[in-house]
Write a protein that binds this DNA or RNA. Structure first.
Lengths: 224, 224
DNA sequence: CGGACACTTGAATAGGGTCAAATTCTGTGG
DNA sequence: CCACAGAATTTGACCCTATTCAAGTGTCCG
């Protein structure tokens, strides 16, 4: 098994004067399933490091990656007693598993998780706009901008000087990008090729590319 | 002005022993804008009665209705200091406006809102699957199922006896349905016509239709 | 009853999907 | 270092679903 788990009973020092809570810190290898849809929702997870994807499946195999969660995000939150999607790591990931029952007992933890859910709720709406109304090129551009920290979002600082380029590590295969953006693998590939031919990006390795002009790509998201 | 507002300083009796909170109960006429995207987010709203839509716009006019909120739902929640979408009533609606600053002071209210956000967060993910992976017919079927309370969701009771029909009040124009499901008005119209011709539904009035066999429509959502 | 708006229908089109094949990585073992 | 296998990706040709554009038709409300 690729997973190594370290369970521990620990004091959450950073959360102040709460009583001792039952938490487990776990490390998962890349592409490891953490839970499945319709399984009893026993834990709420916090991502410390790495990247986790949440996805839903239709019976005929169509897949939709509904969310990508990196450090600081939470997952496993559900309004019913079972998980509403599958969770799987993309990169090697460190997560904290909070026992669902114990969360109620820590107002600080509750508050923290609520804050994360609120943030993720807002970004899931931005994603709905992507899925619903954007062209393939706009989707890819939007996705690339998401991969450049600090740019493109609310109060983007704008280009930094002459050379406004950025290196991006995708962390997802073409198939995963397709399932996230609701395209096919072929369309993702074709769109990236078209962007490369137009000189907007350079594909260094499979998962690594360079955006030559961040602002120009940002203008291609359709948002401006 | 179509809006009649009643402001009041009231004790939220149902929320127990919290101190007096600043809330305003307001009534809005149908198709009335409540707030705009990028406006300072001063309030969090709770829907008491009616129907509110949240939507985002792209600069070129493309619109995506990201959420429909009925009684018991909240809106105006944002992780940044401005609203991230537009809010507009569809039906005449009664809402409670909570002062953003005052929310923090009521743990009970905080908890209540968090609970709503959690629920809405989950349903927004289900909607992402609709937008991303479903065909026009599946989208319309999914939407119709959403309009039939108690059916199609987690632990649906199944058909009730021989005559498993339901009357639906849409409350949305074809254009709004299109913007919610990410289709065009023509595709919505054509799809409804096709369903009518196949004898699955009967279109009584513009906004009212009858589903002859709920289970059959449910099977058309693509979820089963 | 008439005007405005919402909806429906038709024909042509295009964007992305599907299917199939070629190419490029990546890792392994010699 | 090179050869090879298997997988991931790219590319090509064709197709289909939903869109676009353009008329109609229906419905509501004064």
């Amino acid at each position: 098994m690729l997973t190594s788990s370290v369970f521990c009973e620990m004091q959450i020092a950073s959360r102040g004067r709460d009583s001792i809570a039952s938490v487990a810190s776990r490390r998962f290898a890349p592409r490891t399933q953490i839970f499945r849809e319709s399984e009893p929702a026993r834990h709420v997870y916090e991502v410390v490091d790495g990247l986790v994807m949440l996805y839903k499946l239709l019976p005929d195999g169509r897949r939709q990656i509904v969310e990508l969660i990196s450090a600081g995000g939470v997952f496993g939150v559900s309004s019913v007693p079972v998980y509403d999607c599958f969770a799987e790591t993309l990169a090697a990931s460190q997560v904290i598993a909070h026992d669902r029952a114990s969360i109620e007992q820590s107002p600080e933890l509750c508050r923290h998780i609520s804050e994360c859910v609120k943030r993720q709720y807002c970004s899931s709406r931005a994603h709905a706009l992507v899925l619903g109304r954007k062209t393939a090129t706009e989707r890819i551009a939007t996705f690339m901008m998401q991969c450049i920290p600090g740019r493109g979002g609310y109060n983007c600082p704008g280009p930094r000087g002459r050379n406004d380029s950025a290196r991006i590590r995708l962390g997802l295969t073409r198939q995963e990008i397709a399932d996230y953006l609701c395209l096919t693998i072929e369309t993702v590939s074709r769109t990236l090729t078209a962007l490369r031919r137009r000189g907007l990006i350079k594909i260094d390795k499979r998962e690594q590319l360079r955006v030559n002009d961040v602002c120009r790509v940002c203008r291609m998201t359709g948002d401006h």
